[in-house]
């Protein structure tokens, strides 16, 4: 899925205080609601009504089906918490849950470790190289996730390009196993998730005034010290946004782990598909989905206490 490339921060909804004589703001400085619009409204005014069709649409097409799934997890096949009990009673299933978390956390950390210096390099590189670095991040972002995961299989498998090359160069005598195991999952997911880390990081770092670093050094701080005590804290918002995006998306991944992982690397997403398509156990699949969704929403709720989650999804001006 080529997700939110341009879907970064801010929704400057015009919640301006009432001001009887709106001083014309410079063009581009927010949208001054025409003065005539300050009257009372019941549910919405004329403009607001335009947001209602999509709200209704998403309620019917998305939210109601989700609610039904949620309900079904308690009613299918019998009323009660049976599905959840079955899930938490069996180590096979709890292992999947643990594995999902471990994978998501590892992927987040690796993308952060790679993405942070990469984004930093983008901010200090000359304009031409900056564009090159940006395009390198954006090209995979634009291309089908399926295609990329499939390409990685071709590249990483025992008879794949990497192993063939290393073997023919005599650097290794046996192929290194890089697919159908945890390594494969990690490589694949990091490859897929890296843009989601780099883009918010870059957006934040670009806004950091580099003169602050010079100022710190001018005050006697060593460059490394200035970097750690000035630059890193200032980029925290980008780290948080990128990590949240990567972590939450990793939790629900299906395609990449299914293609690159082995039997021990099953994640929740894959288990849900299995339960529906092969076992036809709808109630249990629904319970799994409910667990995954609740975990995702709880994480978002926790994150929203520390960072402005809306800014991550709504585009910044």
């Amino acid at each position: 899925m080529s997700s939110s490339a341009t879907t970064a921060p801010d929704r400057r909804a015009p919640s301006r205080g009432a001001e009887p004589d709106p001083r014309p703001a410079p063009p581009g400085a927010g949208s001054p609601a025409p003065p005539g619009k300050r009257r009372r409204f019941f549910l919405t005014d004329g403009w607001g009504a335009l947001a209602l069709p999509i709200a209704g649409y998403l309620l019917v097409v998305l939210i109601v089906p989700l609610a039904i799934v949620f309900a079904r997890s308690f009613t299918d096949p019998t009323l009660g918490l049976g599905n959840y009990a079955a899930f938490f009673a069996s180590p096979i299933y709890t292992d999947v849950l643990v594995n999902t978390f471990v994978t998501a956390i590892t992927v987040t950390l690796i993308t952060l470790l790679i993405g942070f210096p990469y984004a930093y390099l983008m901010t200090i590189a000359p304009p031409v190289w900056r564009s090159v670095l940006l395009v390198v991040v954006l090209v995979p972002f634009w291309t089908s996730l399926l295609v990329r995961s499939f390409a990685l299989v071709l590249l990483l498998r025992d008879t794949g390009a990497i192993n063939e090359t290393l073997l023919s160069l005599g650097l290794i005598s046996d192929p290194i196993t890089m697919v159908r195991n945890f390594t494969g999952v990690l490589i694949g997911m990091v490859q897929v998730m890296l843009p989601f880390m780099v883009l918010p990081l870059y957006a934040t770092m670009r806004g950091i005034d580099r003169r602050l670093l010079q100022a710190a050094e001018g005050l006697g701080a060593r460059p490394a010290f200035a970097f750690w005590r000035v630059f890193v804290p200032l980029s925290a918002a980008g780290v948080a946004a990128g990590s949240l995006l990567v972590f939450i998306q990793s939790l629900g991944f299906y395609i990449t782990p299914a293609l690159l992982g082995g039997p021990d690397d099953v994640m929740l997403g894959e288990l849900i598909v299995q339960q529906v398509s092969t076992v036809l156990n709808w109630g249990f699949a629904s319970a799994l989905a409910a667990v995954l969704l609740i975990v995702t929403l709880v994480l978002l709720a926790i994150a929203s206490r520390f960072i402005d989650v809306r800014r991550i999804f709504w585009k910044e001006q």
Partner: peptide, 18 residues
């Protein structure tokens, strides 16, 4: 001065404000 109502009056003449 700002807030005196001069722009509101102009906007009413122009029809942008009821």
């Amino acid at each position: 001065s700002s807030g005196s109502g001069k722009s509101t009056l102009l906007n009413i003449i122009a029809g942008f404000t009821d």
